[in-house]
Amino acid sequence: MNAVTRDQRERIVALLEGASAEPEVRAVVLTATGRGFCAGADLRGAPTAGERVAGDVARMIRLGAQRFIGSVLDCEKPVIAAVNGTAAGIGAHLAFACDLVLAADSARFVEVFVRRGLVPDGGGAYLLPRLIGPQRAKELMFFGDAVPAAEARAMGLVNRVVPAEALEETAREWAERLARGPTRALALTKQLVNASLDTDRSTAFAAEAVAQELNMTTRDAQEGVASFVERRAARYEGR
């Protein structure tokens, strides 16, 4: 069920950081093989209470689960989650951190932490209220019930639900469409939207103006304006 190991987490973080730095990467898809998207963190081998000292858990969460989710939010390329099955715990938060979420009709999302007597980590208490509001976020986190894909879409957690056999093709279509877009403009748009709920209007407007100033220095912005004036389709290079 693709429980996240430390090595797997570090590899995904490195791939996302690499995607930000590589101009040839224009979009990212996170998906999985098998019958599950991600069952959460792999808890095997975790230190027991007797082996821990004060501060160990907070450090582990900060450098592990939070850094993992942050790498998705901070990636400078649009990230699509293609959720092929159960996404539980940190697996659900991994999907919710993505810019766009596609789900197979067989997928489901589970805030599993309460079932283990744990506090949600990996940014769950930050992400969910911003997506569906505090009351619904508490319902999911307090009860830990599985949410089917169709219900998750109705809540606003998922952009689109497709038949399982169409998930890969749909994710590829979306990724290819994004990859043909103005990549730097998309990166700046992502930053503005992600920051918008944590800032006041004056700060958001100032950030918007700076983002547009920066974006107008890109070749893609110049191409977008030129294509409009010349009445032709734009040909973006991601630069």
Rank of each mutant, 00 (worst) to 15 (best):
F143L: 11
F143A: 14
F143G: 12
F143P: 11
F143Y: 14
G144M: 08
G144S: 08
D145W: 07
D145K: 09
A146H: 06
A146Q: 06
A146L: 05
V147C: 10
V147H: 04
P148L: 01
P148I: 02
P148F: 03
A149C: 00
A150D: 11
E151W: 02
E151G: 04
E151D: 11
E151Q: 05
E151V: 12
A152L: 07
A152P: 05
A152C: 02
R153D: 02
R153N: 01
A154D: 15
A154I: 09
A154L: 09
A154F: 00
A154T: 09
M155G: 02
M155T: 00
M155W: 04
M155R: 00
M155S: 02
G156S: 04
G156K: 01
G156R: 03
G156D: 05
L157V: 09
L157D: 02
L157S: 03
V158P: 06
V158E: 01
N159Y: 07
N159F: 07
N159T: 13
N159K: 09
R160S: 08
R160H: 10
R160T: 05
R160K: 10
R160G: 04
R160Q: 12
V161R: 01
V162L: 06
V162H: 03
V162S: 08
V162F: 02
V162C: 07
P163A: 06
P163E: 06
P163S: 02
A164K: 12
A164E: 15
A164M: 13
E165A: 12
E165P: 08
E165T: 11
A166T: 12
A166D: 15
L167K: 08
E168Y: 12
E168N: 14
E168G: 15
E169D: 13
E169T: 15
E169Q: 14
E169A: 14
E169H: 13
E169F: 14
T170A: 14
T170R: 09
A171G: 08
R172G: 12
R172P: 06
R172H: 12
R172E: 15
R172S: 15
E173C: 07
E173K: 15
E173A: 14
E173G: 15
W174S: 14
W174N: 10
W174E: 14
A175M: 05
E176I: 11
E176N: 12
E176R: 09
E176M: 12
R177Y: 12
R177T: 13
L178N: 07
L178Q: 04
L178R: 03
L178A: 00
A179D: 03
A179T: 02
A179Y: 00
A179M: 05
A179C: 06
A179W: 02
R180N: 08
R180K: 06
R180W: 00
R180I: 11
G181F: 04
G181Y: 08
G181W: 03
G181Q: 08
G181E: 10
P182K: 00
P182D: 05
T183R: 09
T183F: 01
T183W: 07
T183L: 13
R184E: 11
R184Y: 06
R184M: 08
R184D: 03
R184I: 12
R184T: 11
R184K: 14
